[in-house]
Design a protein around this nucleic acid. Structure first.
Lengths: 157, 157
DNA sequence: CTTGGTGCAAACATTTTGCAGCACA
DNA sequence: TGTGCTGCAAAATGTTTGCACCAAG
């Protein structure tokens, strides 16, 4: 039972502080719509994710919560990640076999990563041209693109 | 210790039967170059993969080998998949959390999938425009693209 | 013959689940 | 005050590894 996806943000907010309140509100609304509860654990998890401001792993999230003195169990973290994913607040990113990564999605279903194969550095990218290309490909097949995930593996030139 | 990647095929061979011999030869050469052995198990695994002619999972491969009366252990299958990946004969594809998928790569480092979110149907795609776009993005950053993986999630229009 | 390969079973890492008690709406 | 939520520990999943024996080159 996936939660209602949030709509893509209409304004271009980039300051972490500016988005904490809206995202909490979005989450709250999505939960309420399903008869689910907005608990302190869920709030703390989302707050911590917002502070990351980039890719993270479940383990890091757990660690970070512990450091802040907010004990949240592994089970709750995983359960909340799923909730956040199903309402499109975060996105599940898979680029290596051993670990799931996540990042804030702000309602976007699209994700492009530049992955440096030597340093392991990962950078998130916006690629509007790809959306056009992708939509065209889909339209030609009578399909509709809901989103995409692109990983580009790079080395230094 | 990755094997030497194979060079992209120069000719456009598309018939499964036409490629069995070359891929075996490529694998053999890659193994020999590392002082590794070309065993019956490895040969059977590659043969079976070629017959799949599409995406597959480790479990399917194991199953298919068993049906053919070729008992190969799980451990050997996983070990061989790694070898085949490191010489670019196959490609490791991740598009869901629960299972790794693989497919023949023919030396390519690029991979585009159209994934139907409702039916689960998956289709492989060639997208030359994306290569141009990707290379341009990388060049602008002083980087060099080694390959990419793109997954487009679609529904019926 | 020597080095690497195989199968088996146990180990592993990550994620999921069952359950009993707790707490939000 | 009832349904959903939490933490814990156990289970489940997919993949890897140690080891003793086997086989390719």
């Amino acid at each position: 039972m996936p939660l209602e996806p949030i709509k893509p943000a209409s304004s271009e907010q980039t300051e972490p502080m500016d988005i904490i309140e809206p995202l909490c509100a979005v989450f709250r609304r999505a939960l309420k719509a399903e008869g689910l509860k907005y608990t302190p654990e869920r709030a703390r998890i989302l707050d911590t994710i917002i502070e990351f401001d980039g890719l993270f792993e479940a383990e890091q999230l757990l660690e970070s919560l512990k450091e802040k003195g907010h004990q949240v169990s592994k089970a709750t973290v995983y359960r909340t990640l799923k909730l956040l994913e199903s309402c499109s607040i975060i996105q599940h990113v898979l680029f290596d076999r051993e670990q799931s990564h996540y990042q804030l999605a702000f309602g976007k279903q699209d994700n492009t990563l530049l992955i440096h194969v030597e340093t392991g550095e990962v950078q998130t990218l916006e690629l509007p041209e790809l959306i056009a290309l992708r939509d065209q490909i889909c339209k030609a097949r009578g399909l509709k693109a809901q989103g995409h995930k692109l990983q580009i593996f790079v080395t230094d030139a």
